[in-house]
């Protein structure tokens, strides 16, 4: 059996993922304190022609009025990890801002429809995320990370990697599903507060915009 460096890395990541105590206790390693991101709109988003891209869809509050996930991962780290995951697989990431909804499923689906590969990722500010495919129904998904308090830095990296693999036509093992029944009592009230902040910037009549990360 051939053991590649990447396999070893993957196994280490997976084992570390399992060793992590419930999300609430873990302080994710972050490069810096959360700050507003310098995300610049560069016009209306268009359907890409490049089969080697994965589009990441974000709601308008992301990196803007909100700067970190529900477990305090700064948004700059979220984007860095997802994009690194995609690039690790040799593909390119493209960012769009989905203005008309704050629903993670619809954001992911919009990203997938814009993506040259047909694969998109949706991430909302509190960390709930989805890997989506163009020809699925909006509320279906390839992989859903529904419990924001369990979506950690390494989950974002793995999400980017898997999205890229789907884009290449591979059939990857889904990122291991995690479940914490106690996330709801601890976080749901807070999640409601955060989501109301999220939707305040939504404009259902405004189109999706291309984003440049300065």
């Amino acid at each position: 059996m051939k053991i590649s460096e990447e396999m070893v890395k993957e196994i280490i990541l997976e084992v570390m993922g399992q060793m992590q105590p419930p999300a609430s206790a873990s302080a994710p390693a972050s490069t810096a304190a959360p700050v507003p991101l310098n995300l610049r709109e560069t016009g209306d988003a268009v359907v890409g022609k490049d089969k080697n891209e994965v589009v990441i869809g974000l709601p308008p509050a992301f990196g803007n009025t909100m700067t970190q996930t529900i477990i305090h991962i700064p948004h700059q780290d979220v984007l860095r990890e997802v994009m690194a995951g995609i690039e690790e697989e040799g593909l390119k990431a493209r960012l769009v801002k989905v203005n008309r909804t704050a629903d993670v499923g619809f954001i992911g689906h919009e990203a997938a429809k814009l993506s040259g590969s047909g694969i998109g990722i949706g991430i909302i500010s509190r960390g709930t995320s989805v890997i989506h495919q163009r020809d699925l129904a909006p509320l279906q998904n390839l992989e859903l990370f529904s419990q924001a308090p369990l979506v950690e830095l390494e989950t974002f990296r793995a999400m980017g990697r898997n999205a890229a693999k789907y884009a290449k036509g591979e059939n990857p093992s889904p990122v291991p599903v995690r479940n914490d029944p106690m996330a709801r009592p601890k976080y749901q009230g807070l999640a409601a507060l955060l989501h109301n902040k999220e939707t305040q910037l939504v404009d259902r009549h405004k189109s999706t915009k291309e984003l440049a990360l300065a």
Partner: peptide, 14 residues
């Protein structure tokens, strides 16, 4: 005391 409690926020319907 592990549970999360929030105060009412009427404007948004909490």
């Amino acid at each position: 005391n592990q549970d999360g409690f929030i105060k009412e926020w009427m404007e948004v319907g909490l």
